[in-house]
Design a protein around this nucleic acid. Sequence first.
DNA 1: AATATTTGTTAGATAGATCTAACTTTGTAC
DNA 2: GTACAAAGTTAGATCTATCTAACAAATATT
Lengths: 219, 219
Amino acid sequence: MASSTEENYLKILFNLTHEKGEVNISELSSQLGVSMPTVNSMIKNLQKSDLVHYEKYKPVTLSEKGKKTAALIVRKHRLTEMFLVNKMGFGWEEVHQIAEQVEHIHAPKFFERMDEMLGFPTVDPHGSPIPDKHGRMQELHYKNLSQVKPGNQVILVALADSSSDFLEFLNSRKLKLGMELKILSKETYDQSMIVSYENQQSETLSEKVCEKLLVRSVE
Amino acid sequence: MASSTEENYLKILFNLTHEKGEVNISELSSQLGVSMPTVNSMIKNLQKSDLVHYEKYKPVTLSEKGKKTAALIVRKHRLTEMFLVNKMGFGWEEVHQIAEQVEHIHAPKFFERMDEMLGFPTVDPHGSPIPDKHGRMQELHYKNLSQVKPGNQVILVALADSSSDFLEFLNSRKLKLGMELKILSKETYDQSMIVSYENQQSETLSEKVCEKLLVRSVE
DNA sequence: AATATTTGTTAGATAGATCTAACTTTGTAC
DNA sequence: GTACAAAGTTAGATCTATCTAACAAATATT
Ligand SMILES: [Mn+2]
Ligand SMILES: [Mn+2]
Ligand SMILES: [Mn+2]
Ligand SMILES: [Mn+2]
């Protein structure tokens, strides 16, 4: 069985693969906060357990076994976040650090029970998909709000950044998933947008923020 | 901060202190499933952090700091067991192994929230007291059922053994905490007792079982 | 009291996860 | 196409948690 340390490597490998396609040693090093030699030796280790494919000086890729293992950890992480928000009353900005620890618990029934109590959710509180119990995750490709043309109306469905800083920013602007947003205008100089939501307030959102808001069109 | 390993040593030290008064290296060794030299070196380690008092060839005792640290881990363990039973629908025989892992999570709000949701319970699903958030635990000294005289009526309030084997045995006899029991008779040869509960069935319980059932008198 | 058993300690080894320093390979810029 | 910078590797050290083998102290048995 993989140690917590190994599990953290696999999970970051899994997330970086989906975000950027390729994963190299220096990226892992900075994401994990450990030195490159440490990553190098751990990767050799994971290779011995057939969890990754690796050749000297080439990017690291997860094996099928590694992908499934990683997906099941991500599943535990996201189910935990959902449970903390929906069943225990935490804010979406508070749950990541707790889930980071709970994801390493080995107790299948514990997570099955969470899943049941939550009604088998398919996304976490930040809109990220929850892999199923076989480790299959649907790839959701949403638009950035920054790519939407003025006059259009969309629904906020997920976030490309779940850092607590960003989540607190969204709290301060009363932005929540599921909200309908209408793009009133876009400033050509800095790409900032004026957005109104649900007939109430309207806010100016910088390009940086709009790039992190993932939306789908109102059908 | 103490590692999970150190936390497990402290917790067992805490429990053994309450059960037997003294704690020696070989007892720790067998309870933890590690060799005596391993315990010896870990105890020196805990001593360096002022968590235990220790002199060569003498029993180990927790320092005040160690007692409080241990009590707070026991608190997390027992709150978790209570949460799993009362809020997640687990049986009392299923929760110990999960709590053994969850107790090492560092997230005060997580356990405070459990506590609130449970209505600030004072005992766990096996009747063991839950230390308060300052690490103070009330010492409950109940009678053994085996010490009760025939004809008397008592309430089952706690267990001196929470192993899943024993809990499954209790399940099979439909014994639950809070039940009123009446001692019908006691066999002088083997100290077994015939006990009736709540007017329904009556069961013969061996001495071994009666010693593990903690009761208080019906007032 | 002498001996045997149990309990505890010391020494030395190993495995996992990490580091720094030094070196090598790969990729980029001129 | 040489030279520089960035990325990656190797070697060697450290710290934690564990083990076994050998020895020592405390306790129990006869
Ligand atoms: Mn998260
Ligand atoms: Mn983690
Ligand atoms: Mn327990
Ligand atoms: Mn534990």
